[in-house]
């Protein structure tokens, strides 16, 4: 491969991966907007959702769209359950408590997916391996599906927040829960819905990941790395995740290209280094609102 086609192909991979990271980051941000905490259960939620699709597809022989829908439904349900069991009783307690509780859920979900997948059987979803050359670029069907799925998910959430009454209500709740209560908005139900949508978004990202990579227990690593995209975008921004995710995708892909010959595996750690740098330089992210504290 010559330099041009290498650059073009790496750029395309960065784009695809960046959109997946953006969708994963959106899962964190939706929860953050609703409960002001980071949902550390998301990495295993991603693994679980990917396995739901895998089990439905290859063990029960359901068609691909149906198994994808099952996975989305499972993600939504887990989000709702997490809200009901953890976020609601822990309201008013320090956010750190909710984060630690979601960490407990992370462990539970891992155990459950381990049992459900008969000890983390590896596999792939039924997307055929088809390649198409566009100039120097080599595009595979799975790349297109993964990028399309995650972009569509992000677009749907942005549209929901911008153009529907429900989205306005959710924005109001995230901005000022007490004010929203005073205006008669069903704050509890909307918070629950936010968690549910966050779960479904994570599931969609999990499907994109499963199409792009493989269904396996290591998918949680991608979701952990997506925390960097979330921080970069700002934890309470919605559309900003696209910038954060793409930035992370490009940093990781081109970083791996440049650094891996010297230090194998360093490229995949760049996300965490980026996270520390963002915390140092711009902790509220590019699009996040800076918190101004009043005493």
């Amino acid at each position: 491969m010559d330099a041009l086609s290498l650059a073009v192909n790496t750029g395309f991979q960065a784009l695809v991966l960046g959109m997946i990271y953006a969708a994963l980051a959106l899962g964190y941000n939706m929860v953050y907007r609703a409960s002001k905490a980071i949902n550390l259960a998301e990495p295993e939620l991603v693994v679980f959702a990917a396995y739901i699709a895998f089990i439905a597809f290859s063990w029960y022989g359901l068609p691909v769209p149906v198994s994808f829908l099952a996975s989305l439904a499972a993600g939504f349900l887990i989000g709702v359950v997490l809200e009901r069991l953890l976020a609601r009783p822990l309201r008013g307690r320090p956010v750190v408590a909710l984060m630690a509780a979601t960490l407990g859920a992370y462990y539970v979900l891992r155990g459950v997916s381990m049992v459900a997948s008969r000890g983390f059987e590896m596999g792939s979803l039924g997307i055929p391996e088809v390649y198409q050359a566009v100039g120097p670029l080599r595009v595979s069907l799975s790349d297109v599906v993964a990028a399309g799925l995650s972009s569509a998910t992000i677009l749907a959430v942005i549209m929901l927040h911008r153009f529907t009454r429900l989205g306005v209500a959710m924005r109001a709740v995230s901005e000022d829960p007490f004010g929203a209560t005073a205006y008669g908005l069903p704050v509890r139900r909307l918070t629950m819905l936010s968690w549910g949508i966050a779960g479904a978004v994570s599931a969609a990202a999990a499907l994109a990941l499963a199409v792009k990579a493989q269904v396996g227990p290591t998918l949680d690593f991608y979701a952990l790395k997506a925390l960097a995209a979330s921080l970069l975008a700002g934890l309470d921004s919605i559309a900003g995740v696209v910038v954060g995710g793409l930035a992370l995708g490009f940093i990781e892909q081109f970083g791996s290209l440049l650094l891996d010959p010297y230090m194998p595996g360093l490229g995949s750690q760049l996300a965490f280094i980026a996270m520390l740098i963002v915390l140092l330089v711009k902790p509220y992210g590019i699009f996040g609102t800076e918190r101004i504290e009043r005493v």
Partner: peptide, 15 residues
Amino acid sequence: ASKYIVLGALVAAFL
């Protein structure tokens, strides 16, 4: 798997 499930549930329940 039970290790993960029990530990995770314990943490969440205690919190």
